[in-house]
Design a protein around this nucleic acid. Structure first.
Lengths: 233, 233
DNA sequence: TCTCTGCATTGACCTAGGTCAAGCAAGCAA
DNA sequence: TTGCTTGCTTGACCTAGGTCAATGCAGAGA
């Protein structure tokens, strides 16, 4: 991690709280690491040993029951922060949904550095508060929304977050994008089965609200209507 | 809020990060306020104008759809922190489930104070991280658990949190307690209807796992079995 | 005492979404 | 070309939990 200046997420990740000399000090503690699709960075229940910034790619945070049901409890995009600073075991696993690149730190080294840099902690606090708000919106989805509302919400959310985190400088959202996950993972995120996900996507396609050129691609043809479905309006 | 020394949550709320003189300064910014059952402290979507510590009582954080479905996205107990510091509108409403007492601050005053006191922010960060973990566990419940697993989980959770936050000095959990909410609110928290909540409670009663002396009271007779149901073991 | 009011429970029925079981298309190896 | 694999879709059926409609029951008031 020699060259933070060239880092594509330099100005959006928590690093943006730091001055150049502080950044240089932090960079000595971490290193870049590739994570290939499907590879698990942190196991659910393990002691929290590392934290990281996402540089490229998309990863999932997930929880499982003993009998194998899985729930994805978070999805992280470039510039997002991963991990549980300040002690504790990780209550969820972290697995790459696409090939990814992260900037990784041992938790203890990061904790120590964070304690000395209030601005960094402030940034981290803001991010955590945002993440909590997002988790709570998702609780509404899981507890009260119908299958079609869930699918519509997911498509809007991915379009927005790929737009905001992607390299595209201005787009607030994307109307064509690649899903960073397969149908099973969409189900695990939405609290649905793979079959229901598939049926709802077909329904949206038949209503000409979206197009599905191939398994992974989505084109939003009528964003207004999709938003209406998502918000149950 | 003249006398923080006498405050029952002094050592558990975020105030515990402060030295006596700092605490005195903070106390000048806030005041105690009673909130009676059913009263709303913050409306969903309103600009975030206040934050608070809970001294007594229990409050809910909730989100609604346009057509009136409600999801409770958080429940706060004594010593917990309420509100969305550092800008933004509140994405959820805050309403008292029982008569409550809070120690309230304007958000701007609190933000200013927090910026000058890294230890306070650190404490707040830890709390927010814990809250996020709890929200994510609840996402698993809402997305993947059955009705009976949900009810069992809720009873365990309330027993634990009343035990930890209550005045009882040692009890890690309570085997007899008052529910701080009615059946409708249990449903809104679990993503179920009032009827399903009622039926599942009756089932647990008939299995002699719990007793229900009156509408609001619960006695856990067989905690082991209840935990097994909660974790889907 | 009776009645009113607000929850909670219970029962009968219904449906959204789960389950199970085929198909089917794209990629890939031989 | 065939056959195999992996992921997706589709159809037929089932069930957990929702909906609708009584009924019950405790506390408040008169």
């Amino acid at each position: 991690m020699s060259d933070c200046d060239a880092c594509v997420v330099r100005n959006r990740a928590i690093c943006s709280a730091l001055m150049p000399d502080e950044l240089a000090a932090l960079s000595k503690l971490g290193r870049k690491q590739m994570v290939s699709r499907g590879q698990t960075l942190v196991w659910e229940g393990d002691e929290s040993l590392v934290v990281a910034n996402v540089i490229q790619g998309v990863l999932k945070l997930s929880v499982s029951t003993q009998d194998g049901r899985e729930q994805i409890v978070g999805v992280v995009f470039p510039s997002d922060f991963i991990g549980r600073p300040f002690g504790k075991e990780s209550p969820y696993g972290v697995t790459a949904l696409t090939d990814a690149e992260v900037c990784i730190f041992t938790r203890t080294a990061f904790d120590g550095f964070a304690k000395e840099h209030p601005d960094l902690q402030h940034k981290l606090l803001q991010r955590t508060l945002d993440e909590l708000d997002r988790a709570r919106q998702w609780m509404m989805l899981l507890g009260r929304k119908t299958a079609s509302e869930r699918i519509a919400t997911l498509l809007i959310e991915i379009s927005d977050r790929l737009g905001a985190s992607g390299c595209s400088p201005i787009a607030p959202f994307l109307e064509k994008f690649e899903l960073p996950m397969d149908r099973q993972q969409m189900g695990d995120l939405l609290g649905l089965t793979i079959e229901t996900v598939s049926r709802q996507l077909t329904k949206l396609k038949e209503a000409e609200i979206i197009e599905l050129p191939d398994r992974r691609s989505v084109i939003i043809k009528d964003r207004r209507r999709l938003e209406n479905i998502a918000t149950a309006a």
